[in-house]
């Protein structure tokens, strides 16, 4: 299976955007080698600002650049971007709706060995709660590139969650067009809908293939636009499959699962099972071992889907 780096895609796209638009500026907080903003720094040193290990100042500086008409992309690890500098993002960026793009690497537990201090499992929630903020979690490198191009044209604050590890490639770059506020159906199925974000989109697809062999057909949705979320697609899924499982490499509180539940509860109540990390911090380990430890492998999804299908009376009768 082909894999590609979201970080490389980000760095490469920044360079391309930098050539197209001289108002694109980039900031980093001493992690430009990791976030790949170094690629932009090399090409456009005068438009790159390393703020050092000072995330709060980085967000404020980005706000100032945006206020003066620039399109700043500010990058660091997800936990430092959203946690360390949360109130700076609230006051200096989101409050005024300033045009700052916060693109973080190292979301989720697949950060791996560095452990819980460095694994952002609450970042999507921290950003989703802010008025004016748009929140995007790309599912692969192709989508990352499209997201970066899209948000460069969109006016307003955006948070994009990337990852340390390479993700399996899901999209063909010719056929896919990312849109803010739109999810995409990657596989159709009548029995249940799996709504996922980030790496979990691929795991959901794998799980759907396994379940299909057993006669269970899953609709699989990539909900990369967490905010604004694709309400229509969630409602359509709830109506058509009457059962939803959400899967996220994030706490199940205030992330994708919560966002989906908010829509389902208000618009079309059906059972929703949220898979993700449950009220605990991450730990050190290799990414694949951690995914097993936190029950986020395709096989875990398969088992959860079978359990949750028992909550759907008609199907149980049909299978029985």
């Amino acid at each position: 299976m082909k894999k590609a780096s979201l970080r490389e895609a980000y760095g490469r796209t920044l360079v391309e955007l930098g050539k197209e638009n001289k108002d694109i500026v980039v900031l980093d907080a001493d992690l430009s080698g990791s976030t790949k903003t170094k690629m932009f720094a090399k090409e456009f040193p005068e438009r790159f600002f390393n703020i050092g290990i000072a995330e709060q100042d980085m967000m404020g500086t980005a706000a100032g650049l945006a206020a003066a008409g620039k399109i700043p992309f500010a990058s660091t690890f997800a936990i430092f971007a959203t946690g360390r500098a949360w109130e700076q993002i609230r006051q200096s960026i989101a409050y005024a709706g300033l045009n700052v793009k916060i693109v973080a690497s190292h979301g989720g537990i697949t950060v791996g060995d560095d452990g819980g201090s460095h694994q952002a499992i609450e970042d999507v929630g921290l950003m989703r709660i802010l008025p004016n903020m748009t929140v995007i979690v790309p599912a692969d490198a192709i989508e990352m590139e499209q997201v970066i191009r899209t948000i460069a044209k969109y006016k307003g604050p955006v948070y994009v969650r990337g990852a340390r590890i390479d993700f399996p490639v899901i999209y063909d770059d010719k056929d896919y067009h990312f849109q803010i506020g739109k999810g995409s159906i990657l596989r159709e199925g009548r029995d249940i809908t799996l709504i996922a974000m980030g790496l979990m989109v691929h795991h959901a697809l794998e799980a759907a293939s396994i379940l299909s062999l057993e006669g269970i057909e899953c609709r699989v949705v990539n909900m990369s636009s967490i905010k604004p979320i694709d309400r229509d697609l969630i409602i359509d899924s709830a109506q058509k499959t009457e059962l939803i499982v959400t899967i996220e490499e994030h706490l199940i509180t205030n992330g994708l699962g919560s966002a989906v539940c908010e829509v389902v509860c208000e618009e079309c109540p059906v059972p929703v099972k949220r898979l993700g990390i449950k009220d605990r911090f991450g730990i050190s380990g290799k990414p694949d071992k951690l995914l097993s430890y936190f029950h986020l492998t395709p096989q875990d999804i398969v088992e959860e889907v079978k359990k949750v299908l028992q909550r759907k009376p008609r199907l149980v009768r049909a299978v029985g």
């Binding site: 100042d57 404020g60 706000a63 650049l65 003066a68 005024a96």
Partner: peptide, 30 residues
């Protein structure tokens, strides 16, 4: 700044204005 003419950036939570001033200064230089 969304509401009041003549105000350039939002402030009120202390300690954040100098960072924003730096950002504007960098943009002016560019």
């Amino acid at each position: 700044c969304k509401l009041t003419p003549g105000i350039e950036v939002p402030t009120g939570s202390l300690g954040q204005g100098l960072s924003m001033a730096n950002g504007i200064a960098m943009a002016l230089r560019l």
